[in-house]
Design a protein around this nucleic acid. Structure first.
Lengths: 140, 140
DNA sequence: CTTGACACTTACGTAAGGGTAAGGTATACT
DNA sequence: AGTATACCTTACCCTTACGTAAGTGTCAAG
């Protein structure tokens, strides 16, 4: 079947382990789109995109899996609401949806900018230290 | 006694909890410089600096406490070697020490720069998304 | 139809603490 | 010296996010 990946392929492409994927399924964070009768999990490309999103939120923003689950569920709810609204568009509810989405995006931006700032400060200190060491080596 | 802090003060100044500090002591990562007969821990300013270093390595570089412990112990060993070498300075051993220190600093720099790159990419995407949402709101 | 690679479940282990209980200690006030 | 009370101690169980066996099942190829 085209485009369906077994767990080993997903491991290879994402860097996650079997155990992590099982765990994500246990907590309902990432349920594979297809499950064979034998129990085998099959993942779609969309599942992979969801994993990338999860990893971003976890590794780069440092969110917990519980928070990530909440965010992804909110985004899903919003997406399906937007689809519904397209058939029956209420300008106010659409505005409210946009505002909620913007608030989430801005929260995440603030978070990442704060982390970036700290990390740049550390980078500077480390770079200075390395330069000092290089100078000391040259002088020796 | 001047300059000695009780655990509550350290909690206040570092943001760590009592429990975390006890845990760091359990695993030998941060042993308070003074311990009274009653069991009470007293921390020095140098202990605080060590905590700052620990937090940097943990939060900004994402290292495990075990790795951090290893790094700090290596740095300490190096520092005392440098002191010893000052009394009996062998140019070669001094060079070797400097080179080892430089290698560590460069490893850390590479790590942080890789993370910075990913984070800037995510920042860009998030900023674009937020802008798109703001435009959509304005147009609504 | 067996074999080897991969997959599955079950279940206990680990890291890094959080929360709370039950009680000890340091200091300040009387 | 007695006591209040604020802070401290140890100790134990809970949680998150997996790691690590151990044993069993499945699937595609030969």
């Amino acid at each position: 079947m085209a485009g369906l990946l077994r767990i080993g392929d997903v491991v290879e492409r994402t860097g996650l382990t079997h155990r992590a994927l099982h765990y994500y399924e246990e907590i309902g964070l990432l349920v594979p789109s297809v499950k064979l009768d034998g129990g085998m999990r099959l993942y779609t490309e969309e599942d992979l995109r969801r994993i990338d999103r999860i990893l971003e939120l976890r590794e780069l923003l440092g969110l917990s899996l519980k928070e990530i689950k909440r965010i992804l569920e909110a985004e899903e709810a919003r997406a399906s609401l937007l689809l519904a609204a397209r058939r029956e568009p209420t300008p106010e509810s659409r505005r409210a949806d946009l505002e909620k989405a913007l608030a989430i995006a801005e929260d995440q931006l603030a978070l990442i900018r704060a982390r970036l700032k700290e990390m740049r400060a550390l980078e500077g200190r480390l770079a200075d230290e390395a330069q000092g060491l290089r100078d000391a080596l040259k002088a020796s």
